[in-house]
Design a protein around this nucleic acid. Structure first.
Length: 341
DNA sequence: CCAATATAAAGCAGGGATCT
DNA sequence: AGATCCCTGCTTTATATTGG
């Protein structure tokens, strides 16, 4: 099996104890940066696709700092900072447009002339107990590369070293040349305090890392854990979306407006039951009107069975996007009281 | 030999680009 | 304008592997 970036495992519990350290979960796309001896930069995605053309400013940034960094393999997250928190939507716009030359999320000119107060407030110790404000407030809007690991340094493979050693080596290497656009994610000693802050500020979550853990491919470990904040919503299910003649997902309505479709949380038995209900409605010959003023664009061309009455459901998701859709919706229960399925 | 566990595959959402 | 493809992340389901 070939290399795969180490990934945090989802866990609803935040670990406790001295063996753990905690970081903000920066909501963007995973990115490994390979700097070779000649100063050539390669940006690799989670699935090891080359992303240089998508984030040219990140490539340029690393080129400019190559004299200080030298050959190495960096691990981190490319994010779009909107002034308050990372905007995953904005990063997606860039990912989808294929390059940085479009208006939605344009490549900005370098802003090296901006007063660099980033390092003054930024955490430079693996165990510092600063508040997240110190690492987040100095960041001006735009595409940023947030680093959290160092896998290769010069000719040496660091992956079998404990995380905290790789991390301090990363700090020693990057901190002196870090700026508004490239910096190392802080580590926090108090996971619960960080989680509280994350919930108040509506960040994506917290990543917990075992200090002594080596770098391992994929998710076959319990050394990096992620706990994500969730939006809990009570929505109305107003329709059943079909794919290839079978029930596939449920159409959600929130405050009278289309809120997306949910399929996660539905298992085979439930989908089968929905098929049965659809068949019954078909037998009775009854059809029900669409419960929206206009057909949502997302449902154009989809086969949807509208329900005679809205069915209250509780769902969770990461956030509500600007166009009112729930991101990563997941069905939790029918009804609004949290009754089990 | 069967059960528990690990790995692989499949299906879905979402949005942009491209082609018709 | 519509249909289709692409890519990524996510979870569920199916398959393979391991161990008692």
């Amino acid at each position: 099996m070939e290399f795969e970036p180490m990934a945090p495992v989802t866990d609803p519990c935040l670990p406790a104890g001295e063996e753990w350290t905690f970081q903000l979960k920066w909501d963007g796309v995973r990115m490994l940066a390979q700097l070779d001896e000649a100063g050539t930069i390669k940006l690799w995605s989670r699935k090891l696709l080359l992303k240089n053309s998508v984030y040219p400013e990140v490539e340029q940034l690393l080129k400019d700092k190559f004299d200080a960094l030298g050959p190495c393999l960096l691990d981190g997250e490319v994010i779009y900072w909107d002034g308050e928190r990372p905007s995953f939507q904005k990063v997606l716009q860039r990912e989808r447009s294929g390059s940085g030359s479009h208006s939605a999320c344009p490549v900005e000119p370098d802003d090296d002339t901006r007063p660099d107060h980033a390092n003054s407030g930024r955490n430079n110790s693996p165990t510092a107990a600063l508040t997240p404000e110190a690492e987040t407030t100095p960041v001006p809007p735009g595409i940023r590369y947030v680093l959290f690991d160092l896998l290769l340094d010069g000719g040496t493979d660091l992956r079998d070293l404990p995380f905290e050693q790789r991390y301090s080596r990363l700090l020693g290497k990057v901190a002196p040349v870090s700026d508004n656009r490239l910096f190392v994610a802080a580590c926090y000693a108090d996971g619960q305090a960080l989680w509280n802050w994350v919930e108040e500020q509506h960040w994506e979550g917290v990543v917990s890392k075992r200090r002594t853990s080596i770098y391992r491919s994929g998710k076959k470990h319990r050394d990096w854990l992620k706990k994500k904040t969730a939006v809990i919503l009570d929505v109305d299910i107003v329709g059943i979306k079909q794919r290839d003649g079978r029930a596939a997902s449920l159409v959600m309505r929130l405050d009278g407006l289309f809120a997306g479709s949910v399929s996660l949380g539905l298992n085979g038995a439930m989908l089968q039951a929905l098929d049965g209900a659809i068949a019954q409605m078909a037998d009775s010959g009854q059809q029900w009107p669409m419960p929206f003023d206009n057909l949502p664009a997302e449902l154009k061309g989809e086969r949807v069975i509208w329900l005679p009455a809205p069915m209250p459901c509780r769902v969770t998701g990461l956030e509500i996007t600007s166009n009112g859709l729930l991101r990563h919706p997941k069905l939790v229960s029918f009804g609004s009281s949290g009754a089990a399925l």
